[in-house]
Design a protein around this nucleic acid. Sequence first.
DNA 1: GTGAAAGCGCTAACAA
DNA 2: TTGTTAGCGCTTTCAC
Lengths: 326, 326
Amino acid sequence: MVVKIDDVARLAGVSKTTVSRVLNNRGYLSDATIKKVHEAMESLNYQPNAVARQLFKKETKLVGLIFPTVDNPFFGQLVAALEKRLFDAGFKVLIGNSMNDPKKEETYLKELISNQVDGLIVGAQNRGIEEYHNTNLPVVAIDRVMNEDIPVIASDNYMGGKLATELLINSGAKNIINTDGPVNLETPAHRRREAYEDVMKEHRLVPHTHIVDFSWDIEKKRSAVEEMFVEYPEVDGVFATNDMDAALIWQVATSLGCQIPKDLKIVGYDGANSTRILLPELTTIEQPVEQMAKVAVKTLVSRIKGDRNIPLEQIIPVKVWNGKSV
Amino acid sequence: MVVKIDDVARLAGVSKTTVSRVLNNRGYLSDATIKKVHEAMESLNYQPNAVARQLFKKETKLVGLIFPTVDNPFFGQLVAALEKRLFDAGFKVLIGNSMNDPKKEETYLKELISNQVDGLIVGAQNRGIEEYHNTNLPVVAIDRVMNEDIPVIASDNYMGGKLATELLINSGAKNIINTDGPVNLETPAHRRREAYEDVMKEHRLVPHTHIVDFSWDIEKKRSAVEEMFVEYPEVDGVFATNDMDAALIWQVATSLGCQIPKDLKIVGYDGANSTRILLPELTTIEQPVEQMAKVAVKTLVSRIKGDRNIPLEQIIPVKVWNGKSV
DNA sequence: GTGAAAGCGCTAACAA
DNA sequence: TTGTTAGCGCTTTCAC
């Protein structure tokens, strides 16, 4: 049998109210009582039932995280960073990998709400899910536009796109392709592409975007990349919207006899921890993951505390990771 | 105000028992009632409170995952795979990144128990935490020995170590170093080293293990690797106990003017999805992550259902990923 | 300083 | 086929 507050009370010879008081240390308690109760808890190895407490308090100290998948260097690092900050702030993490499946995202959303999470941090791909609106649950979005009153934390995507494109142009590339997901997703990440197009035009170069969807499996992505080289044989520079795509492009290019960076220059985006260890040669735009996590958690916690005076958009500067691919 | 079962009952003109019945569809219900209740739920946008249900049922449909960190290709993929299988089995995931901190692991363990998780899947580094023993909570360990009655799922570490070492020897390496974490951790992963030592001795070669602790930060690891090359200047082969270490060794070797695989042959371990995309040239032993996740979840679910007839050790075969580093 | 009692939102005997 | 009632383990008001 699991030991509960009554058992402790009985053993300590007090009422359960008193045990609850020492548990939460509030109200007047004599030192003797406190000691007795602590001893009883020790000897019974008592662990309070958080669920019962949650039901009463209407507060779970649980935060839901909805992201595409932690099987990705960027999201893995981001989720780890969020988890760390949330832990320090006293929250546990319920995770939902949406796998870019709107159905799964919606299910998760409903279940997390049903589980009474105190807040949500969302970086999944799919907008337009009704539940995000029909709730006054505190929500923070990372690099996603959810709706008008949900605060967004993002890296400086425009600056990142600009830096990447300039890096390519300055190293002599002229026929530069950008890879990106489909535009129908309204994400701040598309500002990378906007910047790319602006910079290209500034330099009187023609921008081309080739679609590589984040949710495709590896083989589908690989053929999209192969297609890209067929469609644009004159390509001498690529700005990939994430490092996994960049790595794939690198591989395909190499298999086609291209030398990097002599024949083809590549700049990626994300610069996650494990990417920088596994493929440090890739020049990339490093997202400030730790900083984003810090700001996201801070923002969410303020919202949970009832602060209504929260900036709707917080943009965090990026920096360049100098590899050897430009 | 949040809508609860009473509100639905009132609107539908029935008792809350009836609403509860249609919610869980059990017992006899007339079609008319079912319809009325569903309509009331719809129009009020009712979401049942899972916490209240959990308190009553003493079942949360929550599983805790305790792993070092999802900011790592292997653990990221493993956690994603576990989450997927658990979701399909009707469980949500509470995550705890122990960061190899025994204190944090213990705190998580206590809080997950307090949150009444139905089960635990553990792949953290630290054994000897008392709570794992003082509980009859269903627990499954991945690649870790917890205690005598906790089932362990592991890849075939011995075979992996054997394959790796043979790969190096067959490609002509003679002075082969193995990197591993400290031995004081009693993990099945050390069988990789045992196999390495056995195979080396079989070939009348001298085994040497160089310690690279998983929990060190990247700079500390890097200097450990640099030290390795100083200590063993004649090294011509390395069997690294994980791919991140292998990548680091590759980098340091290259910076020292070594050519891979001509001057130095490297075999890693793990072969996670993102590693194979970012660094496909690395020859490595691929852990059957999906399979391990599948078996782990299946085992946990049987335990949760009360099955006591569970194999204590389940070993899953590995395979070689042929890169270009041997 | 401490305890009795009510109630958080739900489910399940038991009755009807 | 449906409703009444008790209770899951905890916290908190109110009384003493």
